[in-house]
């Protein structure tokens, strides 16, 4: 007890440490007013993409629903008719629902999709007061026709999409850089294994 109590050197060190911390840069990101930059391939809210001519990419094959480990996806397909062609293929998704409360944001739906129709965007602010609001149907998943084709899976925008709100200040933090590197390394390895070059996937409709 005596030894600890009269160890003045330790006391001085302790007090100088706390004092010097007053002037240190605070790592706090003041979240709603300042938004952190996510890694470009962050797994967030889903999006159903379109082709350049406005047709839906989804062909209602339900592979995403089968791949989903959380059983969060429900797809009901329907036949395209010559008068009402929703997608280039034979079928389209008459109903496409994702329960975002069940979803674990693993991205397996994105991997399973043969037409790159379903992708995970970096959007993550989905809070709501009603449970039902977390079941996202086509009205919220599908990219509006006027908004273009949607987010290509392999060339995500570097950072937060504009619709996340005004980004006042983006803090460049260490973990973002590390996360970026890690995801990119995995992506490059994967494409090399497949024997493909890493690059944007050509739009099939054009």
């Amino acid at each position: 007890m005596r030894k600890n109590l009269f160890n003045v050197g330790a006391l001085v060190r302790g007090f100088s440490t706390t004092f010097s911390y007053i002037f240190k840069k605070k790592p706090t990101i003041e979240y709603p007013s300042v938004k952190k930059q996510h890694a470009p391939r962050f797994h967030g809210l889903h999006e159903l993409r379109r082709y350049g001519d406005g047709k839906e990419r989804c062909i209602g094959c339900e592979l995403c629903a089968i791949a989903c480990p959380a059983n969060a996806i429900t797809v009901i397909g329907a036949e395209n008719t010559p008068l009402d062609r929703r997608s280039p293929g034979e079928r389209y998704a008459a109903s496409y629902e994702i329960d975002e409360l069940r979803c674990i944001f693993c991205g397996l739906c994105e991997e399973a999709c043969p037409t790159d129709a379903i992708v995970l965007t970096p959007r993550f602010e989905m809070a709501d007061y009603r449970r039902g609001a977390f079941v996202y149907a086509k009205d919220r998943l599908l990219v509006p026709p006027e908004a273009g084709v949607g987010t290509p899976p392999d060339e995500r925008p570097n950072g937060i999409p504009a619709d996340l709100g005004a980004v006042m200040r983006v803090k460049d933090t260490v973990d973002v850089a590390q996360g970026y590197e890690a995801t990119n390394r995995g992506h490059i390895l994967k494409t090399q294994r497949r024997g493909l070059a890493a690059g944007p996937i050509a739009d099939q409709s054009s």
Binding site: I22, F23, K24
Partner: peptide, 13 residues
Amino acid sequence: KIMGWMQLRPGPN
């Protein structure tokens, strides 16, 4: 505030 700064937080703001 001071405690916050000493703990690398901004404190109430």
